[in-house]
């Protein structure tokens, strides 16, 4: 009798948390395991961007928001990630 959606017994929020923690470990691995600096930068920025999107979409509940708000958020995320990658010498 509630609006909490569950998948495999866990709420979507908890799944989002698992994804975020997984991405954190992945970004850590990118930072230490890869010997190519470019690939490190690429991996770190992109995982950070995806994590930020998950936080916005799930935790900040942009999934329920009018689409313009979600699009504005995604647009900001794409622009800032691109600018950072450009400044860091990738792209």
């Amino acid at each position: 009798m509630n609006t909490i959606i569950r998948i495999q017994g866990l709420s979507v929020m908890t799944w989002a948390w698992f994804v975020l923690v997984g991405m954190t470990v992945l970004a850590w691995w990118f930072g230490t395991a890869s010997d190519s600096p470019d690939r490190v930068i690429m991996g770190v920025i992109i995982t950070a961007a995806i994590k930020i999107w998950v936080i916005g979409y799930q935790f900040m509940e942009l999934r329920h928001a009018p689409s313009f708000l979600h699009y504005a958020f995604v647009l900001w995320l794409i622009v800032i990630s691109t600018v950072l990658l450009l400044l860091l010498g990738i792209l």
């Binding site: 930068i41 770190v44 930020i52 509940e61």
Partner: peptide, 20 residues
């Protein structure tokens, strides 16, 4: 939402300061 914003900002700061 403000609390999640704090989280979100840290994600990028963490990436730029600790991981690059």
């Amino acid at each position: 939402i403000f609390w999640h914003l704090v989280d979100l900002l840290w994600i990028m700061l963490f990436a730029l300061l600790y991981l690059l």
